[in-house]
Design a protein around this nucleic acid. Structure first.
Lengths: 236, 236
DNA sequence: TTTTCACATTGATCTAGATCAATGTGAATG
DNA sequence: CATTCACATTGATCTAGATCAATGTGAAAA
């Protein structure tokens, strides 16, 4: 089905915002809007890179796995984020929808060519990639060196920041209350912990009145300062 | 001191390879060749991003730290690699020379502007950033989910691949023998382990005749297949 | 050559977090 | 309403890897 960039909800935030109306019409011809059900994969680790896309609606996880099933979530994608591996022929990770989602898909060869012809678009893509690289490197410090309480606290703070755009009830650019877009197992896969450890840390934070948990998906930050302290306190 | 791109040893491998002779002269005017002693830092975590550079000679580590001194190495840089954070105003990590090194430095504002005016250069930079992002994500799986034996085996294999360019005595694109460019503590900081654990794993591999250790810096791979098996075997 | 000093190995013990095993919980279904 | 089923919590135990503590080792300096 043909897409319509003019009416696209992410046209001002996605990389397409680098394009003028004529160019939007041109890229429109290359794109296809696709719906993905929760749990369905869009891209598989190890496959050839044949498509790239913009997330329009929903959320995705980016994962890498070992043969015996151990899985690490290595990234999360939200509306306006870019997915896939341009200028390379192999996908190094799997992309799976966490909720019912919509993406705007391009064939990689079409996209690569279009990007090379539109430096402003390529610039946007570079900026996004640099931001993502910074984010991923921050996760490396977390996975390599942080304790379980530090990981959970950092995670809650990052989520409250990241979801701040979407909603209101904001204090200082972060949300005081928000709904996690995933369950405990996936939190564990993000943090490199087990589900039990994540659960125990959450309970602990609740007991200490640092957070409240109206239900399993919702988190309310009661004491942001303390949460920050826990997030990068030394061990002990 | 003025640089001379025509004679530069990395001109064919660094991002500068995207430029034609005229453009090389232009970027030459913006660059400054700087020597860095082993152990000296080029960029500090948290500082404003004021410079970017190409590595010409030597090696660097990219690190991020917690207040109490825990440190994670989040990247390594070799000749022709690009350093620094273009199009952003904050350095998220520290860059330190591992050996006496030389870099070709640009002021970030000069560089940003020059890149925007030269799409081919920006394209090279994007390609490098995408490759680095893939590499870093692979490390996330390692840090989050791999056991100590798996980490050490993966590390030795990656090093033998990465150093394959530099030397001869290559079998199937990888080196059978190579000198690690760093000591045990730094290996530990790369793998998110302690120095003792790294040491024990190396001893174990030696006992099982998977590798030989002529001395503390040199590694000889005796049984690459087994090393691969260990690198992503399930636990147990 | 001996001394030194930084680094690596080895051993003994401890512990954070994994694993194993019930037991809640609450939204969807009959 | 009871039943189910997926998910979350809680508890008991185990273990990989950290930590603490000597003991090697080998290259540079005296």
């Amino acid at each position: 089905m043909m897409n319509n960039c003019e009416q696209c909800v992410v046209k001002n935030k996605a990389i397409c915002s680098a394009l003028d109306p004529d160019e939007l019409i041109a890229i429109n011809r290359l794109s296809r809007k696709v719906s993905i059900k929760a749990g369905q994969a869009l891209i598989w680790e190890g496959d050839d890179s044949l498509i790239v896309a913009n997330v329009v609606e929903g959320a995705f996880k980016l994962t890498s796995s070992l043969e015996d099933g151990r899985e690490q979530i290595i990234g999360l994608l939200y509306p306006s984020d870019f997915v896939g591996r341009p200028f390379g022929d192999r996908n190094e990770y799997t992309v799976t929808a966490l909720a019912d989602s919509k993406v705007c898909v391009f064939s990689r060869s079409d996209f690569d060519q279009f990007v090379r012809e539109h430096p402003d678009l390529e610039h946007k893509l570079l900026q996004r990639t640099l931001v993502e690289l910074d984010r991923v490197r921050r996760s490396m410090l977390m996975l390599g060196r942080k304790t379980a309480p530090e990981r959970v606290a950092s995670f809650l703070l990052e989520m409250s920041d990241r979801l701040a755009d979407a909603s209101c009830s904001v204090v200082g650019g972060s949300l005081q209350q928000f709904a996690l877009p995933f369950g405990r197992q996936q939190v564990a896969d993000i943090l490199g912990l087990t589900i039990e450890t994540v659960s125990r840390q959450m309970t602990q934070l609740k007991k200490n009145e640092v957070i409240a948990l109206p239900d399993h998906r919702n988190v309310q930050i009661l004491d942001a300062n303390r949460l920050h302290d826990i997030a990068d306190a030394g061990p002990g």
